[in-house]
């Protein structure tokens, strides 16, 4: 029983664009950027279904490390988890990755990468999605 909490193939498939690439929504009425997408603007309450590609950049709002992993995630433990404030505004929960020896703090600048979130056992599908890492030193 080494399964993800939510393991339905169609459930993951439905979310592929947001999971792989942080595709959220923008409210056509008040321009609020929405992630995760929720179709109704949390700010003005109007219909908001226009897709919006987030830049993937943000900063750590809070962080911790999971040592006692739920089944389905134990092969990856311990793993760091953060709430990230995206530069467009929304908060999002995700794992951090490629930390190396760098200390993570609230305020650390991070960028989105697409990584393996888990596998539905030895034979099931592989699940990919967003994680965040400290911004790669350029050039």
């Amino acid at each position: 029983m080494n399964r993800l909490a939510s393991m339905e193939t169609s459930q993951h498939w439905r979310l592929r664009q947001q999971r792989y690439a942080l595709v959220g929504e923008v409210c056509p009425h008040c321009t609020t950027k929405i992630f995760p997408p929720r179709d109704i603007c949390p700010d003005c309450g109007e219909d908001a279904r226009d897709l919006y590609q987030f830049s993937g950049r943000g900063e750590v709002y809070s962080h911790t490390t999971v040592y006692q992993a739920p089944s389905g995630h134990s092969s990856n433990a311990p793993y760091p988890v953060a709430i990230v404030r995206l530069e467009e505004g929304p908060l999002v929960t995700a794992q951090l990755t490629d930390i190396g020896d760098q200390p993570v703090e609230i305020g650390t600048q991070v960028e989105m990468v697409t990584r393996k979130l888990g596998a539905d056992g030895e034979r099931g599908m592989l699940v990919y999605g967003y994680k965040f890492r400290p911004i790669l030193a350029e050039r």
């Binding site: 939510s6 999971v66 006692q68 739920p70 433990a77 929960t93 794992q95």
Partner: peptide, 14 residues
């Protein structure tokens, strides 16, 4: 939220 929290290995302790 199973699609946006639990899938990332988040539990109530997290």
């Amino acid at each position: 939220d199973s699609e946006y929290e639990a899938v990332h290995g988040v539990t109530p302790s997290t």
